[in-house]
Write a protein that binds this DNA or RNA. Structure first.
Lengths: 335, 335
DNA sequence: TCGCAGAATTAAAACGATTCAACGCCCGCT
DNA sequence: AGCGGGCGTTGAATCGTTTTAATTCTGCGA
């Protein structure tokens, strides 16, 4: 069926070892032989069997990336950055989407483990510390993306989410808003918790400003829309005058819902700020203020760290890299 | 380093064959043995080596999907549909992003071929017919996504893009626009060509309506923005009064650019319609009219077709499935 | 008691690429 | 002529799982 290195060797009149050398270290083989083998390869249409290669090598040539939501442009940007860095070392990125679901997250970790991936990048959900420790004990370096773990036993690349939350709410307070709602969830996602913490910190510094929290089941446009509808249903006096959404998807959902009814206007009645600064944020009905994260850089750096950890071996000093978020002001929080 | 079935067999006091049976056909093994082996497995922390498995099996348990742009929500939706269907058969989807770049497309096909994937789904770029024929000759079923190939030698799942283009431009004509610009490119992407053809067809049926085409290098927000700026730079009299963009990303870019300047309003001065109806389209500055495609269903159906073709073997009758697009009218083409 | 079907288990042969120690060869040097 | 040292090449062993044919074991009917 499929042609193997053995057949290539036969038609080229050399041994299998030589074929392998042509494939992997052509400089160790005489030019004339290289040519003969190449000819046999293209004549037979030989294609390397990656499984056999990996079996022998003991490791695959890819790294696994588990994200919370592929539909979120923030994560596709991270993935792109990761791919770029991986490509520099001839590695491939396997993208797994946990969809904020612990079962799927676990399934992808199993898969990556069976595949003997070079390393794992994960934006974790819930408590997977033990699972990841085991993985690492088996020799698979692991880097946390967009989240730090308290005990510093893992390398990580993150953005200071507390600072981000603080930036957002300070800004809302600065433009004179006093009844602020934080929209986000679930609380098993660390980013949500941290951004909320930052929000609380900012509120504490501004007397007279109160913070309400509205929980959601996920960080999607749909969930945002339902929160928006919920806000509309309230009597006007009980509505917040500003909303800080845990990510842009939620914020855009809220915006869509609020825009349905003419009597609530953004930003006049409710100022709105999101998080991530995805490309679509600036194109929203009302261009969305947001907290920008260097998404592609996060992915790039994470893989970089992973490679360093892979080389460093056992006694590698785990490194926590943290970027600072940036406030982007647009129309949705004007005035 | 890593524990193998051999060690599991040793500690459980059975042969490797039995361990394999416990893993794959537990019903063929006596309950007491199953239990003993399971115990050994978890005690040693054994994890199957997928490479060895694949080597033996001759095929991997995943299917490859090559899309034109992962940043385009349309394709992530397709991917999600494909994943869902693949999961039903215990398969994984490997997502490759060609980024509208023939080199990358080719690299992913190579990769998938080396991995001996179960099948390939591809939204092709340029002329890859030969390449795909070779792939299929090697026993890898292939299904084209979002594009039909003229000679019907491949199975495909697509949406009638000519009809979509026709719908869009007929709608623009119906609301009284007469100077229509088609924005899209490159022409190596079939969807672009077909949508333009549909547009031409519609124009032909409406005397007095003229069509101008503006080429782009890719179907991204950035390209759209530069087209928008280009339009703004023209004297008012030479601007089109409607724009049909080959996808929503482009359309949103155009919209962003037009919105910068107060004197051109959408839809008053320029009506705008996109294609794909991505989730963000309805949340745009001016909610975007678009042509909706059943994206997740496309992915789902494509994998389904792939599985059928894989079973059917050599003499499988290639099937071309075509869905019909749907016109979604929003504010960007009101009045 | 013997034989035998059927179930449970085993041992060995794949799968295909890589690696490494060993080997042959040619050349230059003494 | 003899010797040593590279270079190119070889062949066999190896990675870890699955599969098959062969083997042992069990109980049951004749």
């Amino acid at each position: 069926m499929s042609v193997s290195v053995r057949e290539v060797a036969a038609t080229a009149g050399v041994s299998v070892g030589t074929v392998s050398n042509v494939l992997n270290r052509p400089d160790k083989v005489s030019p004339s032989t290289v040519e003969r083998v190449q000819a046999a390869i293209s004549q037979l249409g030989f294609v390397r069997n990656d499984a056999a290669r990996q079996l022998r090598a003991g490791r695959s040539r890819s790294i696994g990336l588990v994200v919370l939501d592929v539909a979120n442009p923030f994560f596709t940007d991270v993935a792109r950055g990761a791919e770029d860095r991986a490509a520099e070392d001839g590695l491939t990125v396997l993208l797994g989407n946990s969809d904020e679901n612990p079962g799927r997250q676990s399934a992808y970790l199993d898969l990556f483990e069976e595949q003997r991936v070079h390393g794992v990048l994960i934006s974790p959900l819930g408590d997977v510390g033990d699972r990841l420790s085991r993985l690492r004990a088996r020799g698979t370096p692991t880097v946390l993306v967009d989240r730090e773990i308290a005990d510093r036993s893992f390398s990580s690349v993150a953005v200071d989410d507390v600072a981000g939350g603080y930036l957002a709410v300070s800004h809302l307070a600065a433009i004179g808003r006093t009844r602020i709602a934080f929209v986000g969830g679930p609380h098993s996602i660390r980013q949500v918790v941290d951004r909320l913490e930052g929000a609380r910190k900012a509120v504490a510094e501004h007397p007279g400003v109160v913070l309400e929290t509205i929980d959601t089941d996920s960080l999607s446009v749909l969930q945002g829309r339902s929160v928006g509808e919920q806000l509309l249903a309230r009597p006007a006096g009980e509505r917040p005058d500003a909303v800080f959404a845990a990510n842009d998807l939620l914020a855009m959902g809220v915006l869509q819902a609020l825009n349905m009814l003419g009597d609530v206007r953004v930003p006049r009645d409710i100022a709105l700020i999101g998080y991530d600064d995805i490309a679509f944020a600036s194109a929203a009905v009302v261009p969305l203020s947001s907290i920008r994260q260097p998404s592609a850089l996060i992915g790039y750096t994470a893989v970089d760290l992973l490679m360093r950890e892979a080389e460093g071996g056992e006694d590698f000093e785990h490194e926590q890299i943290q970027f600072q978020p940036e406030l982007i002001i647009r129309e949705s929080t004007a005035g």
